[in-house]
Write a protein that binds this DNA or RNA. Structure first.
Lengths: 135, 135
DNA sequence: GTGCTTGCAAATCGTTTGCAATAGC
DNA sequence: GCTATTGCAAACGATTTGCAAGCAC
């Protein structure tokens, strides 16, 4: 699905900026930070403001069109892939990798044994990635 | 185990401040932020500085004597309980609850199918807690 | 006395806010 | 024209840094 239709699907009114940001998330599976999205899009859209990127990414994650990741302390990252998967952060190079989940995240959703309602699940792993191990 | 011996176990040189901070984490299972630890300890130790709290909590989490939680975007929390368990954040009241983990986190530790070395695992759940549901 | 630990103040950085300019129906 | 969206600049708050003073062996 392209960016425009993903916005429509999640009931988000499309605008030039929103489509560009959604498209960036869908075509760059690098789990970018706000600043990476902003800086990358600025080349093609020089009038884009950081505020709009903040607003839009918040809107996307609240609407369910993107995931807000807090695996990296001190700065938030975003993922346009909203299918169930886990995330791995390499402490050496700082890259975030996708990992498959054994027991699907969907099973956890709903009411916890303690009586809390769970509507969002994140599995975060940290360590050293394959590439950094080889060095 | 008391704070002093937990520091020794994790090869951390004890000091008055480090013992006080470790003790705070062991006796307050509220997943406090840096500021909560600092403010609470300041009453009894007026000369304590925020820098020391930052340094010590970083040292504790790097040494494995405490967990650094990033479930709450924008500010980091700490947990003196280093046994395997998951965390649930209530978006209404902001409290973090401990949850038991079905498949133990220890099983995940080690080499991932992709060849990355995993040495830290966090399971984060978000939603509305029992108490807030009742209101 | 040497090296580690602490504490203060200033700086930094990601993020939020207030508000005016703009775009879309 | 009305409402929602965008963009700028200033404010904010958590965290980091530089460095001097203090403590322990």
């Amino acid at each position: 699905m392209d960016a425009y239709h993903k916005l429509i699907t999640f009931k988000i009114k499309p605008s030039v900026q929103r489509i560009a940001i959604m498209d960036y998330l869908l075509t760059h599976r690098t789990h970018p930070s706000v600043d990476e999205v902003y800086t990358s899009l600025c080349e093609a859209m020089p009038t884009l403001s950081r505020t709009t990127v903040y607003n839009t990414l918040e809107l996307l994650s609240e609407s369910g069109a993107a995931l807000m990741l807090t695996i990296d302390e001190g700065k938030v990252c975003f993922d346009g892939d909203t299918s169930p998967h886990a995330h791995f952060l390499c402490r050496k190079c700082g890259k975030i990798y996708d990992l498959p989940v054994e027991s699907t995240i969907k099973e956890v959703m709903g009411l916890s044994p303690d009586g809390h309602v769970i509507d969002e699940v994140h599995y975060y792993y940290k360590g050293t990635c394959k590439n950094c191990l080889a060095k």
